[in-house]
Design a binder for these strands. Sequence first.
RNA 1: GGCCCGCUAGCUCAACUGGCAGAGCAACGGACUCUUAAUCCGUAGGUUCUCGGUUCGACCCCGAGGCGGGUCACCA
Length: 495
Amino acid sequence: MPEREEELIRSRRDKLQRIREKGIDPYPTRFPRTHTTRLAAELLLNLEASDGEGGRTSAVSVAGRVITSRIMGKAAFLDLRDGVGKIQLHLRRDVLGDDYDLVRDLDLGDFLGVHGPVFRTRTGEATIEVEQLTILSKSMHPLPEKWHGLRDVEQRYRQRYADLISNPEVAQVFVQRSQIINSIRGFLNRRGFVEVDTPVLVPIAAGAFAKPFVTHHHTLDEQLYLRIATELYLKRLIVGGFDKVYELGKVFRNEGMDQDHNPEFTTLESYEAYADYNDVMQMVEEMVSTAALETLGSCQVQFGEETIDLTPPWKRLSLRDEILKRGNIDIEEYNTAASLEARARELGLEVRAEGSWGRLVDKLLSLLVEPQLMQPTFMVDYPDEMSPLAKPKAGMPGYAERFEAYAAGMEFANAYTELNDPDLQRERLLGQEEMRRLYQDDEVERLDEDFLVSLGLGMPPTGGLGVGIDRLVMLLTGQTSIRDVLLFPQMRSLK
RNA sequence: GGCCCGCUAGCUCAACUGGCAGAGCAACGGACUCUUAAUCCGUAGGUUCUCGGUUCGACCCCGAGGCGGGUCACCA
């Protein structure tokens, strides 16, 4: 540690020592609060409403962290912050007597419990006249600076606790995140969905195209993976007789990181028996607009320059039409990997040479269409080659009953009518295995034999949904980076 | 992974063309009983991300590396 920082800490240690020498425990076990900072200020407002200005409330007990101090000899003003707000403290020698000496052993960052009446200062600020002062926790490390706060992006992510202390508005996003998730739970629960937990440690990482994290169980001496999706377990539950299930939880994908990818992220997956993807579409627009209304009070959300209107119904666009319209490529005309790739290159698009046709279509979608989709939009009817778990669309050979939801140029949901024909499902998954061999693509769907066994018992027609919760939170809170909706985004370890 | 940008005191930031590394806040000592970016006087504090090079002299130029951000690639 640099010498200078040691000095700052030494000064705090000296104070700690002095406090202990006075027989005071700088880390006591509890402090009974009667009021939060906010309630204490409201108490004064209520008093003033009934008795007029200039009064003092009965004594309150409030606790929090000292965030600023203005010491003037025999009196001092401190600002105390708790989880809901802050309130000013007034400390006077003629009120506190010798206890006032403690002021010189206080630092910014310490936790205090105070007891005393609330009054209003000449400048109009609700203030506690401290009659009793209790140190609740001594802070040993200096806080970031009070005007600018902690700005360094790296340190804000690595030391989120310091970020939250220094930039209290950051907490607001995470409060909203909690409210959004609560709203979604409430929405699904009201509709009769049952929330379940399925394994995170799995013998086969299936249900999505992604590289898994690999781990090992010692007692079983087996290689296990962290799940990349919850899909196949939830469908097993539909087979088992649950009509409506959902899971909110973390999944893990061993891939790149950027503004909208973190290696671990939260998904919602839901499955509803006897529903199809049209029903799911309706549910998604209702669920998302309800979450916006319940947490923001409006279906209009600000995202950068754009105002995004989440009021249903959302636009529905066909994947083939959009790629044709925006990219001048008809995926039906170029129906092989080679011809599609040639066509894309002809139009000056950078596409990977060794991709399957389905992967190329996906590439074109994210290149040509996705960035344009600011307003909430359902992209419908995906080629079944890129949707091995989805049911073929009736009357539209080669296509699956699948949609993805987009907004703010970002995909945030994916859904389909689930494939429940066990023979066709096996065929599809074998096709994926073939694809893996052909393209050395280790991100294709894996064959989960037990899942096929469950389908063999019979699965009702089912509408399934996956939502990227972090991206949905980004959308609703106007954050452009996933790191700003994750309290502890993944960071490289410091050596 | 490619390219661009950043990394200087605990925090926020300066430092000319390569010429003594500075300020504010925080800290420390002192004054101060209605301040709120409190004020006033004084003090201390640096591995300029790391390593190497060029140079009389490097925060600055060159090379390698680290971490972060952006972008492209990758990626449901």
